[in-house]
Design a protein around this nucleic acid. Structure first.
Lengths: 251, 251
DNA sequence: CGTACGTTTGATCTTTCTCAATAATGGTGG
DNA sequence: CCACCATTATTGAGAAAGATCAAACGTACG
């Protein structure tokens, strides 16, 4: 596998450069960050609510989700992390974590000491800018997530989240021919959209019956991308990915 | 009014210092930021989705909310801004705004040129830290907002949002004797919680009938704070306000 | 004093949830 | 390779929370 040879932080670097150009020296500094690589199984916690993490973790490979649990035990998924995402920007500057992060799949995780990254952010304006932008884009995705869960019906919610995945994955080159392996169960999809797994199942079947997507096991194929976007009231603006960074506008 | 004499950016400074200690020099630099003060009427837009703002605005006085509108015209309120909040941290580093900000009440707004604040953030580690923390706390509030709208029933949602207001207002010294003037209509409350105004009305009456709050016009009084927190599944952790900053834990 | 906006209330309708059972699917040990 | 087990997906029927529609009531304000 050539991927196993790749520098673990190159994914982070790539994500940073989605939003800002970095000078060579800064790029070097990011790659030279001290780090330790671990392979973890699906279901492992990267962070638990209440933790005081000392590392910032970068998903070199694999998927994860942020979640919070309510008093009566139901779970809300707040965000999905895809390869290259920095999982712990929150905890780089705040003392105690306000939510948990759990792996969706087996994953390779790079641990970077909190102080090392913090220092780069505060002393290198280019890196500071990049990290701040990253944080702000995450917040923008969160705002759209609120809208999705608060003001759209079940069909729109599911269609929307599928569109979001498509565009985000594509911006990292992780889409294969108008489709991808959805790394979540229908129950997790339900927790992400504020629905029940039963209803998610019915909606997915509906989208399939109407020819917007087709499914084979967990694989989602975008049968009618235009119609899916319409069904999900989706516009890519909130992702703040400039068009020329991706081929998605043709997609 | 002594408030009219107060430096407009002192509110911002106070908010920054909620999360980080600033050296004297940095405090000076914040207060010396160039700015222009405007008084605007309720309903005015501070930012519109799609704008490319050149200023970062600080609410010196008054209330506002962030919102997004879906394709079919329904509105979701994403956050409520209270006096002292910086409205435009997003747009300080991102080019185009992904949501709108609209005033709830008449307000005094200080416009700070984007570049001036950006420069402070990138060259003064203490200020950079403070602004990043602010941004991260806002994101944390957003995550809790997702949980509220996604996984709590109507009564819990309303109770929770009332608790959040109480604690946030108190952290700025804006609570008067276990109550405050709620600056929103029931319809806006509905848009914030993903409900309808009719249902919000019934829930409010229910909370009142059960003795958790009492209301006089828009004034909310916390009749039974403990019970209201329980009803709203509320814990202040996600606000990242250290206990000793407020008297709220006794409240 | 009338108009506009916000609140309150009732009756009915829909979406989504709940409960429950069955069918696939993938992984595991023998 | 196969039987078995644990998840996950699928389907049906009934229940419930909240939406919708419609109307009346207050209150502020010009």
């Amino acid at each position: 596998m050539s991927t196993s040879k790749e520098h673990p932080l190159s994914y982070l670097l790539r994500q940073l450069e989605l939003y800002t150009d970095l000078p060579v020296e800064e790029r070097r500094l990011v790659l030279d960050l001290p780090h330790r690589l671990r392979r973890l199984d699906a279901g492992s916690y990267l962070v638990r609510e209440g933790d005081q993490p000392t590392n910032c973790m970068v998903l070199a490979k694999g998927y994860a989700y942020r979640q919070k649990v309510t008093g009566d035990g139901s779970r809300q998924i707040i965000a999905v992390c895809i390869p290259g995402d920095a999982v712990d920007l929150q905890n780089m500057f705040l003392e105690v974590s306000d939510h948990s992060v759990q792996l969706l799949t087996q994953a390779d995780v790079a641990d970077v000491p909190r102080e090392a990254l913090q220092k780069l952010v505060l002393t290198r304006p280019a890196i500071g800018t990049a990290i701040i932008k990253l944080t702000l884009v995450e917040a923008s995705i969160l705002r759209e997530w609120v809208v999705n869960v608060g003001r759209r019906d079940a069909r729109e919610r599911i269609a929307h989240i599928l569109c979001e995945f498509a565009v985000r994955l594509e911006s990292r080159g992780l889409l294969s021919d108008h489709g991808f392996e959805l790394p979540m169960t229908q129950e997790q999809l339900a927790d992400a959209t504020g629905l029940t797994s039963v209803h998610v199942n019915r909606v997915l079947k509906g989208l399939e019956a109407d020819g917007l997507i087709s499914r084979k096991r967990r694989h989602i194929h975008y049968a009618d991308w235009r119609a899916l976007q319409d069904a999900g009231d989706f516009s890519r603006r909130y992702l703040h990915i400039s068009d020329h960074d991706t081929i998605a506008q043709t997609f």
